[in-house]
């Protein structure tokens, strides 16, 4: 670090001394304060404080300006709240299963591009487009696609003589969650594709060439070379998708509002309903749900990291 400055004889003799202030990697507290304070102020004021306040509020019943201390009553009520458990079940189904769909689709698309299909540049841009659309736009589009009377899905089923299968995709409790999962996967497959593609391109070329010299077919190359080497990226993508789905709100809220019959209720939509949508006027109970869910999400991310990433450490 200090190789540029010419050390004086005295400093040469005092090797044990702490690095001098001339070390360019050191800064005065004043400088650090100037650089870090604004960001930390935003963090403390708009992330840390609200998060603590939500925890704190979860021990109260809060109606307007009146806060009544109720201890653990909110949490006790939560344990026997059937709607809450249904929303937990739906969110878990979505969070654990759907990421597999996202990541596998993304990997297959990336491999197709890597294998050198024509017009790869165009295809990459085309497949990535849904990632950029807002959930509001995606939700509206897919509500139309799933429309019973004129949606493209039912129109196609009727066109090929399978009119009996035409359904009210978002209105049937057995189908609604699946319909939402498909919609969500439509939006996110492109993201997984570009990440996989970038990871494949960054694989050491020698290994891939060696496998080709060994007369290794595509299937074997995929199974024994590419997928094992992409493991850290694929796991990272799985965890990213998992986090995203544990938080899912917008899509559900616009397409089904958690209905029909709570079939698509997620924890996020339930918190929102209890806080701002139902006329219960109590912010304490939804705070308790949010607190529980905060712990669950953080714990799940930590556990997944430990379970899946045995050797490689993940950033998330």
């Amino acid at each position: 670090m200090t190789s540029i400055s010419i050390p004086s004889a005295a400093e040469e003799g005092a090797q044990h001394a702490a690095p001098s202030l001339a070390d360019p990697r050191r800064a005065s507290w004043w400088v650090l304060t100037v650089f870090l304070t604004p960001a930390l102020a935003v963090y403390v004021g708009l992330t840390a404080y609200p998060a603590f306040r939500t925890f704190y509020d979860s021990f109260f019943t809060i109606e307007g300006l009146d806060a009544t201390f109720v201890g653990l009553d909110n949490y006790r009520a939560l344990m026997s709240d059937e709607t809450f458990w249904v929303s937990v079940r739906n969110t878990f189904i979505w969070s654990f299963i759907a990421p597999v769909l996202d990541v596998v689709t993304g990997l297959l698309l990336a491999l197709a591009l890597y294998a050198g299909v024509p017009a790869a540049r165009f295809l990459r841009v085309a497949w990535f487009t849904p990632v950029l659309l807002s959930y509001v736009v995606v939700a509206i589009l897919w509500m139309w696609i799933f429309n019973y009377d004129w949606g493209i899905l039912n129109a196609m089923l009727r066109a090929v003589g399978l009119g009996a299968l035409a359904s009210s995709w978002l209105g049937d409790p057995n189908l609604a969650l699946g319909a939402l999962i498909v919609t969500h996967a439509w939006k996110w497959a492109g993201f997984n594709m570009v990440v996989c593609l970038a990871a494949i391109h960054s694989l050491p070329r020698e290994v891939l060439e060696a496998s080709e010299l060994d007369n290794c077919g595509w299937g074997a190359k995929l199974r024994y070379v590419i997928v094992p080497m992409l493991r850290p990226t694929l796991l990272n993508l799985y965890i990213l998708a998992f986090i995203g789905k544990m938080k899912i709100f917008d899509l559900v809220w616009i397409m089904t509002q958690g209905g029909p019959l709570w079939a698509t209720e997620t924890v996020s939509t339930y918190v929102y309903k209890r806080a701002f949508n139902w006329n219960t006027f109590d912010l304490g109970y939804p705070s308790a749900i949010a607190s529980v869910w905060f712990v669950v999400v953080c714990a799940a991310v930590i556990i997944l990291n430990r379970l899946l990433a045995t050797r490689e450490r993940l950033e998330y």
């Binding site: 870090l36 960001a39 930390l40 963090y43 708009l46 992330t47 404080y49 609200p50 998060a51 306040r53 939500t54 509020d57 986090i243 544990m246 938080k247 709100f249 924890v267 996020s268 918190v271 929102y272 806080a275 701002f276 912010l283 939804p286 705070s287 749900i289 949010a290 607190s291 869910w293 905060f294 999400v297 953080c298 991310v301 998330y316």
Partner: peptide
């Protein structure tokens, strides 16, 4: 530590701050 604190909030579910931010 500062980096970890700033970064870790990326996994927070939004509801943990949403209700309080409304009040604040």
């Amino acid at each position: 530590l500062v980096y970890g604190i700033l970064f870790s909030s990326i996994i927070f579910p939004p509801q943990i701050t949403l209700i309080s931010l409304y009040q604040i």
